[in-house]
Design a protein around this nucleic acid. Structure first.
Length: 286
DNA sequence: TGCCAGGAAGCCG
DNA sequence: CGGCTTCATGGC
Protein backbone atom coordinates (compact mmCIF):
# COMPACT_ATOMS: atom_id res chain seq x y z
CA UNK A 1 0.00 0.00 0.00
CA UNK A 2 1.20 3.48 -0.83
CA UNK A 3 -0.58 6.76 -1.16
CA UNK A 4 -0.32 10.35 -2.25
CA UNK A 5 -2.03 13.40 -0.81
CA UNK A 6 -3.10 16.26 -2.99
CA UNK A 7 -5.07 19.00 -1.27
CA UNK A 8 -8.36 17.58 -0.06
CA UNK A 9 -7.85 14.25 -1.80
CA UNK A 10 -5.79 11.21 -0.96
CA UNK A 11 -5.22 8.36 -3.37
CA UNK A 12 -4.33 4.91 -2.09
CA UNK A 13 -2.71 2.41 -4.42
CA UNK A 14 -2.68 -1.31 -3.77
CA UNK A 15 -5.41 -1.44 -1.15
CA UNK A 16 -5.32 -5.23 -1.13
CA UNK A 17 -8.91 -6.02 -1.93
CA UNK A 18 -10.65 -3.39 0.17
CA UNK A 19 -14.36 -3.49 -0.61
CA UNK A 20 -16.25 -0.27 0.13
CA UNK A 21 -19.67 -1.85 -0.36
CA UNK A 22 -19.06 -4.56 2.24
CA UNK A 23 -17.22 -2.27 4.64
CA UNK A 24 -19.95 0.35 4.78
CA UNK A 25 -22.85 -2.06 4.52
CA UNK A 26 -21.86 -4.63 7.11
CA UNK A 27 -23.50 -2.87 10.04
CA UNK A 28 -20.49 -1.34 11.76
CA UNK A 29 -21.21 2.27 10.79
CA UNK A 30 -24.49 4.10 10.32
CA UNK A 31 -23.58 7.35 8.60
CA UNK A 32 -22.33 6.38 5.13
CA UNK A 33 -24.55 6.08 2.08
CA UNK A 34 -23.80 5.17 -1.51
CA UNK A 35 -24.18 8.09 -3.90
CA UNK A 36 -25.36 7.89 -7.49
CA UNK A 37 -21.85 7.81 -8.93
CA UNK A 38 -21.02 4.77 -6.81
CA UNK A 39 -18.90 6.55 -4.22
CA UNK A 40 -19.72 6.18 -0.54
CA UNK A 41 -20.29 9.44 1.30
CA UNK A 42 -20.50 10.07 5.01
CA UNK A 43 -19.37 12.28 7.82
CA UNK A 44 -16.48 11.55 10.14
CA UNK A 45 -14.20 13.86 12.13
CA UNK A 46 -16.71 16.64 11.32
CA UNK A 47 -15.92 16.40 7.59
CA UNK A 48 -17.89 15.12 4.63
CA UNK A 49 -15.86 12.27 3.22
CA UNK A 50 -16.17 10.51 -0.11
CA UNK A 51 -14.74 7.03 -0.67
CA UNK A 52 -14.43 5.92 -4.26
CA UNK A 53 -13.21 2.53 -5.32
CA UNK A 54 -11.58 2.13 -8.72
CA UNK A 55 -10.00 -1.27 -9.04
CA UNK A 56 -7.09 -1.38 -6.67
CA UNK A 57 -7.04 2.40 -6.27
CA UNK A 58 -9.07 4.10 -3.56
CA UNK A 59 -9.77 7.82 -3.70
CA UNK A 60 -10.68 9.56 -0.46
CA UNK A 61 -11.91 13.15 -0.73
CA UNK A 62 -13.00 15.67 1.83
CA UNK A 63 -15.92 17.29 0.07
CA UNK A 64 -16.08 20.14 2.54
CA UNK A 65 -12.68 21.25 1.29
CA UNK A 66 -10.64 20.36 4.36
CA UNK A 67 -7.11 19.05 3.73
CA UNK A 68 -6.73 15.28 3.57
CA UNK A 69 -4.38 13.43 5.90
CA UNK A 70 -3.36 9.92 6.96
CA UNK A 71 -6.11 9.79 9.56
CA UNK A 72 -8.49 8.69 6.79
CA UNK A 73 -6.28 5.70 5.97
CA UNK A 74 -6.36 4.63 9.57
CA UNK A 75 -10.12 5.29 9.75
CA UNK A 76 -10.71 2.72 7.02
CA UNK A 77 -7.93 0.37 8.22
CA UNK A 78 -6.31 0.56 4.78
CA UNK A 79 -2.90 0.36 6.45
CA UNK A 80 -3.59 -3.11 7.82
CA UNK A 81 -2.68 -6.44 6.31
CA UNK A 82 -5.98 -8.27 6.18
CA UNK A 83 -4.56 -11.22 4.29
CA UNK A 84 -2.49 -12.05 7.33
CA UNK A 85 -5.53 -11.58 9.59
CA UNK A 86 -7.51 -14.00 7.45
CA UNK A 87 -4.67 -16.50 7.57
CA UNK A 88 -4.58 -16.17 11.36
CA UNK A 89 -8.30 -16.89 11.66
CA UNK A 90 -7.99 -19.87 9.30
CA UNK A 91 -5.07 -21.30 11.22
CA UNK A 92 -7.14 -21.06 14.41
CA UNK A 93 -10.13 -22.78 12.80
CA UNK A 94 -8.55 -25.45 10.68
CA UNK A 95 -11.05 -27.46 8.68
CA UNK A 96 -13.88 -25.10 9.60
CA UNK A 97 -15.78 -24.95 6.31
CA UNK A 98 -18.26 -22.39 7.60
CA UNK A 99 -15.48 -19.96 8.48
CA UNK A 100 -13.79 -20.57 5.14
CA UNK A 101 -16.99 -19.69 3.30
CA UNK A 102 -17.66 -16.70 5.57
CA UNK A 103 -14.19 -15.31 4.92
CA UNK A 104 -14.55 -15.88 1.20
CA UNK A 105 -17.94 -14.13 1.22
CA UNK A 106 -16.83 -11.22 3.37
CA UNK A 107 -13.45 -10.70 1.75
CA UNK A 108 -12.76 -6.97 1.52
CA UNK A 109 -14.51 -6.01 4.76
CA UNK A 110 -12.37 -3.70 6.87
CA UNK A 111 -13.03 -3.18 10.56
CA UNK A 112 -13.09 0.61 10.72
CA UNK A 113 -11.44 2.68 13.39
CA UNK A 114 -14.33 4.98 14.15
CA UNK A 115 -14.58 7.79 16.64
CA UNK A 116 -15.22 6.29 20.08
CA UNK A 117 -17.96 8.64 21.27
CA UNK A 118 -19.97 8.37 18.08
CA UNK A 119 -19.58 4.60 18.19
CA UNK A 120 -20.65 4.45 21.82
CA UNK A 121 -23.82 6.49 21.30
CA UNK A 122 -24.63 4.74 18.03
CA UNK A 123 -24.53 1.29 19.57
CA UNK A 124 -26.51 2.40 22.60
CA UNK A 125 -29.14 3.44 20.06
CA UNK A 126 -28.80 0.04 18.38
CA UNK A 127 -30.07 -1.96 21.34
CA UNK A 128 -33.35 -3.76 20.64
CA UNK A 129 -33.56 -1.81 17.37
CA UNK A 130 -33.17 -2.36 13.64
CA UNK A 131 -30.59 -0.88 11.31
CA UNK A 132 -32.82 1.43 9.23
CA UNK A 133 -34.31 2.99 12.37
CA UNK A 134 -30.91 3.22 14.08
CA UNK A 135 -29.71 5.28 11.10
CA UNK A 136 -32.74 7.56 11.29
CA UNK A 137 -32.36 8.22 15.00
CA UNK A 138 -28.64 8.97 14.63
CA UNK A 139 -29.34 11.31 11.72
CA UNK A 140 -31.88 13.19 13.84
CA UNK A 141 -29.45 13.45 16.77
CA UNK A 142 -26.84 14.90 14.43
CA UNK A 143 -29.24 17.37 12.84
CA UNK A 144 -30.48 18.49 16.24
CA UNK A 145 -27.23 18.74 18.19
CA UNK A 146 -24.36 18.54 15.68
CA UNK A 147 -22.62 21.30 13.76
CA UNK A 148 -23.56 22.16 10.20
CA UNK A 149 -21.19 20.96 7.49
CA UNK A 150 -20.99 22.78 4.16
CA UNK A 151 -19.43 21.86 0.85
CA UNK A 152 -17.05 24.16 -0.99
CA UNK A 153 -19.94 26.09 -2.51
CA UNK A 154 -21.29 26.77 0.93
CA UNK A 155 -24.25 24.45 0.68
CA UNK A 156 -25.40 22.55 3.74
CA UNK A 157 -24.50 18.89 3.23
CA UNK A 158 -24.94 17.43 6.71
CA UNK A 159 -24.09 17.59 10.38
CA UNK A 160 -21.21 16.46 12.54
CA UNK A 161 -21.90 13.93 15.25
CA UNK A 162 -22.86 15.74 18.46
CA UNK A 163 -20.24 16.19 21.15
CA UNK A 164 -20.83 14.89 24.66
CA UNK A 165 -21.17 18.48 25.79
CA UNK A 166 -23.86 19.19 23.19
CA UNK A 167 -25.90 16.13 24.18
CA UNK A 168 -25.52 16.97 27.84
CA UNK A 169 -26.77 20.50 27.45
CA UNK A 170 -29.60 19.27 25.21
CA UNK A 171 -30.96 17.15 28.04
CA UNK A 172 -32.87 13.86 28.07
CA UNK A 173 -36.13 15.40 26.95
CA UNK A 174 -34.78 16.81 23.68
CA UNK A 175 -32.73 13.68 23.07
CA UNK A 176 -35.92 11.67 23.31
CA UNK A 177 -37.58 13.89 20.72
CA UNK A 178 -35.18 12.34 18.18
CA UNK A 179 -37.07 9.06 18.56
CA UNK A 180 -34.67 7.27 20.87
CA UNK A 181 -37.46 5.85 23.02
CA UNK A 182 -36.32 4.42 26.34
CA UNK A 183 -32.65 4.87 25.36
CA UNK A 184 -32.74 8.61 26.03
CA UNK A 185 -31.49 8.27 29.59
CA UNK A 186 -28.70 5.93 28.48
CA UNK A 187 -27.49 8.41 25.86
CA UNK A 188 -27.63 11.19 28.40
CA UNK A 189 -25.72 9.18 30.99
CA UNK A 190 -23.04 8.23 28.47
CA UNK A 191 -22.61 11.90 27.50
CA UNK A 192 -22.42 12.84 31.16
CA UNK A 193 -19.81 10.16 31.95
CA UNK A 194 -17.63 11.32 29.04
CA UNK A 195 -18.05 15.03 29.66
CA UNK A 196 -17.30 14.87 33.37
CA UNK A 197 -14.24 12.69 32.81
CA UNK A 198 -15.69 9.60 34.47
CA UNK A 199 -14.52 7.65 31.42
CA UNK A 200 -11.75 8.51 28.95
CA UNK A 201 -12.65 6.75 25.72
CA UNK A 202 -9.40 7.48 23.88
CA UNK A 203 -7.36 6.19 26.83
CA UNK A 204 -9.16 2.87 26.43
CA UNK A 205 -7.32 2.39 23.12
CA UNK A 206 -4.21 1.68 25.19
CA UNK A 207 -5.94 -0.85 27.46
CA UNK A 208 -6.61 -4.54 26.98
CA UNK A 209 -9.87 -5.65 25.42
CA UNK A 210 -11.12 -6.94 28.77
CA UNK A 211 -10.32 -3.68 30.55
CA UNK A 212 -11.90 -1.58 27.81
CA UNK A 213 -15.10 -3.62 27.85
CA UNK A 214 -15.30 -3.55 31.64
CA UNK A 215 -14.89 0.24 31.67
CA UNK A 216 -17.53 0.72 28.99
CA UNK A 217 -20.02 -1.48 30.84
CA UNK A 218 -19.99 0.87 33.79
CA UNK A 219 -22.09 3.19 31.64
CA UNK A 220 -25.82 2.66 32.07
CA UNK A 221 -27.30 1.03 29.00
CA UNK A 222 -24.00 -0.49 27.91
CA UNK A 223 -23.95 -4.27 28.26
CA UNK A 224 -21.61 -6.91 26.83
CA UNK A 225 -22.79 -6.58 23.24
CA UNK A 226 -22.66 -2.79 22.97
CA UNK A 227 -19.33 -2.68 24.81
CA UNK A 228 -17.85 -5.26 22.44
CA UNK A 229 -19.06 -3.28 19.42
CA UNK A 230 -17.47 -0.08 20.71
CA UNK A 231 -14.25 -1.93 21.49
CA UNK A 232 -14.12 -3.63 18.10
CA UNK A 233 -15.23 -0.74 15.88
CA UNK A 234 -13.44 2.14 17.58
CA UNK A 235 -10.91 1.05 20.20
CA UNK A 236 -8.46 -1.21 18.33
CA UNK A 237 -9.68 -4.43 19.95
CA UNK A 238 -9.69 -6.95 17.10
CA UNK A 239 -10.49 -9.80 19.49
CA UNK A 240 -13.69 -8.20 20.85
CA UNK A 241 -16.57 -10.45 19.84
CA UNK A 242 -20.05 -8.90 19.89
CA UNK A 243 -22.76 -11.52 20.25
CA UNK A 244 -26.09 -10.44 18.78
CA UNK A 245 -29.10 -12.25 17.37
CA UNK A 246 -27.46 -12.77 13.97
CA UNK A 247 -24.28 -14.21 15.40
CA UNK A 248 -26.28 -16.39 17.78
CA UNK A 249 -28.20 -17.62 14.76
CA UNK A 250 -25.15 -18.50 12.68
CA UNK A 251 -23.33 -19.97 15.68
CA UNK A 252 -26.34 -22.12 16.60
CA UNK A 253 -26.54 -23.27 12.99
CA UNK A 254 -22.93 -24.30 12.47
CA UNK A 255 -21.24 -24.61 15.85
CA UNK A 256 -21.67 -26.73 18.93
CA UNK A 257 -23.53 -25.47 21.98
CA UNK A 258 -20.38 -25.06 24.10
CA UNK A 259 -18.32 -23.37 21.37
CA UNK A 260 -15.95 -20.73 22.72
CA UNK A 261 -15.36 -17.78 20.39
CA UNK A 262 -11.85 -17.36 21.83
CA UNK A 263 -10.82 -20.24 19.61
CA UNK A 264 -11.19 -17.84 16.66
CA UNK A 265 -7.99 -16.24 17.95
CA UNK A 266 -6.65 -12.68 18.12
CA UNK A 267 -8.93 -11.55 15.28
CA UNK A 268 -12.13 -13.08 16.61
CA UNK A 269 -13.88 -9.76 16.02
CA UNK A 270 -13.06 -9.87 12.32
CA UNK A 271 -14.25 -13.46 12.25
CA UNK A 272 -17.46 -12.30 13.91
CA UNK A 273 -17.91 -9.65 11.24
CA UNK A 274 -17.45 -12.22 8.49
CA UNK A 275 -20.03 -14.48 10.14
CA UNK A 276 -22.44 -11.57 10.60
CA UNK A 277 -22.13 -10.56 6.98
CA UNK A 278 -22.42 -14.17 5.83
CA UNK A 279 -25.60 -14.82 7.79
CA UNK A 280 -27.31 -11.47 7.48
CA UNK A 281 -26.84 -10.79 3.80
CA UNK A 282 -26.72 -14.27 2.40
CA UNK A 283 -28.60 -16.36 4.94
CA UNK A 284 -25.54 -18.54 5.30
CA UNK A 285 -26.05 -19.88 1.79
CA UNK A 286 -23.17 -18.02 0.16
C1' DT B 1 -52.84 -7.48 14.59
C1' DG B 2 -48.67 -9.24 16.68
C1' DC B 3 -43.87 -9.72 16.08
C1' DC B 4 -39.31 -8.35 15.66
C1' DA B 5 -35.26 -5.36 15.60
C1' DG B 6 -26.87 -5.82 15.83
C1' DG B 7 -29.91 -5.53 24.20
C1' DA B 8 -29.80 -4.24 28.80
C1' DA B 9 -31.91 -3.20 33.34
C1' DG B 10 -34.78 -4.65 37.01
C1' DC B 11 -36.66 -8.14 39.57
C1' DC B 12 -37.42 -12.62 41.28
C1' DG B 13 -36.36 -17.46 42.74
C1' DC C 1 -26.16 -16.78 39.11
C1' DG C 2 -30.12 -17.93 35.57
C1' DG C 3 -34.50 -16.85 33.75
C1' DC C 4 -38.24 -13.72 32.92
C1' DT C 5 -40.32 -9.10 32.01
C1' DT C 6 -40.19 -4.51 30.55
C1' DC C 7 -38.53 -0.82 28.03
C1' DA C 8 -40.35 3.07 22.92
C1' DT C 9 -40.81 2.99 18.28
C1' DG C 10 -41.67 1.78 13.53
C1' DG C 11 -41.89 -1.49 9.62
C1' DC C 12 -43.84 -5.49 7.93
Amino acid sequence: MNYEINGNTIKIYGANGFCADKTFDCGQCFRFEKSEDGAWEGIAFSHLISVKEDGDTITLSLLDGAPADERLISYLALDRDYESFDRDILSCTQGDETMKRAIETGKGIRIMRQEPFETLISFIVSQNNNIPRIKKIIARLCAAFGEEIHDRRGELVGYSFPTAKALLSAGGERIRECGTGFRDKYIYDAARAVECGEIDLYALREKSTEEAIAALMKIKGVGPKVAACVALFSLDCPDAFPIDVWVKRVMGKYYKEDFDYHSFGDYAGLAQQYLFYYERFLGGEG
